[in-house]
């Protein structure tokens, strides 16, 4: 094959040219993080201004794709830092990681102590609805079951929010989870491969509610001036998505990687995240949050399985889900 050799030659030439000048920090993340409108470009500019290095993002898809990319590359990976795994995925990644060494007081609704994974933003999973179409949303899974509303959810086998909902029902109902899923089955319009398809169907008016985040309505308020989207508060409490960053043990830039972790927890980075990633910052920046975040619901009960428990629960919970919905 001609192309690989040609490309390999080009690669070597350009890599040598770059190495001679500045150290490079390779950061693996998910694709919406590095999009033009995501936090990536601003984070890159701010960090490069202080580190005298070249920050390079790689984004092979969503968070799960990122994890499988890391596993595929194995020991050969050139990744120094991974940004964007959540607690449903960290247990599998943990053996590859090294301590981050950052000690900062985090503004999370739960206590967090993990030497390997440092939260950088978070939100609660929630069903988002349109206030003009659904004036009185359900206040629990049971009320949703008894309603005539249609919801669209993501497949837990292909998407992290889908996996989050699976854990939410499991955390709230334990052994009754299968019964809840059987009750929900008629309410579920369809199950999509990822968040985008589900949210798209909701915006098109195909479904009354969609599984998303309590912070999703902030996007519509701040970016579109549209206050008709809201998240429904459920009495059972809401499952958390905590997005974390970690240093890959095999990194050849350990100091730079630690510097980046500290930077990620600093005001400079945290102030960028809310209005680019549409999640809560892990450390509230000095300026506080934009007004669009003030009207959001804030659940009193937060649910979250420890990472190893989430991994152990996944397969039985998936089987339960599949059987309940396949009937």
């Amino acid at each position: 094959m001609r192309y690989p050799t040609l490309a390999a030659g080009l690669l070597m030439a350009s890599a040598m040219a770059a190495q001679a000048q500045t150290p490079v920090l390779h950061v693996l993340t998910y694709d919406s993080f590095v999009a033009e409108w995501g936090p990536g470009p601003q984070i890159e500019a701010a960090f490069e201004a202080e580190c005298g290095c070249d920050l390079q993002f790689a984004a092979p898809g969503d968070a799960a794709a990122m994890l499988s990319r890391l596993m595929l590359e194995g020991a050969r990976t050139n990744v120094d830092v991974v940004v964007g795994l959540d607690t449903n995925l960290t247990a599998q990644a943990a053996p590859l990681m090294a301590p981050h060494g950052v000690e900062t007081a985090l503004d999370l609704p739960i206590t967090w102590e993990d030497p390997l994974f440092l939260p950088f933003d978070w939100s609660w999973f929630a069903f988002v609805y349109d206030t003009t179409r659904t004036p009185t949303p359900p206040a629990s899974f049971r009320e949703l079951i008894d309603s005539d509303l249609s919801v669209v959810i993501q497949d837990p086998r292909s998407s992290t929010p889908g996996l989050g909902l699976l854990m939410w029902v499991k955390a709230a109902y334990g052994d009754e989870a299968a019964a809840i899923w059987r009750g929900l089955a008629p309410r579920i319009l369809t199950v999509t491969p990822g968040w985008s398809e589900a949210y798209g169907l909701f915006l098109e008016g195909e479904a009354d509610m969609v599984l998303s985040y309590t912070t999703s309505p902030a996007y519509h308020v701040i970016a579109e001036g549209d206050a008709t989207k809201a998240a429904a508060r459920f009495d059972e409490g809401h499952y958390l998505q905590v997005e974390v960053a970690s240093i890959v043990g095999s990194t050849d830039q350990p100091d730079l990687a630690r510097q980046f972790m500290a930077f990620l927890a600093s005001d400079a980075a945290q102030a960028i995240l809310p209005e680019t990633n549409w999640m809560y910052p892990a450390v509230t920046p000095e300026g506080g949050l934009a007004e669009g975040f003030q009207g959001l619901i804030r659940p009193e009960t937060s649910l979250l399985f420890p990472a190893d428990e989430a991994l152990a629960l996944r397969d039985p919970a998936l089987a339960e889900w599949r059987e309940a919905l396949a009937q």
């Binding site: 086998r157 292909s158 169907l201 396949a326």
Partner: peptide
Amino acid sequence: ALTLGGGPRATTLELAIYQ
């Protein structure tokens, strides 16, 4: 198949590979 299939009944081999 997944988006219009309405749920895990509509699971194809390709989705299983994906998982």
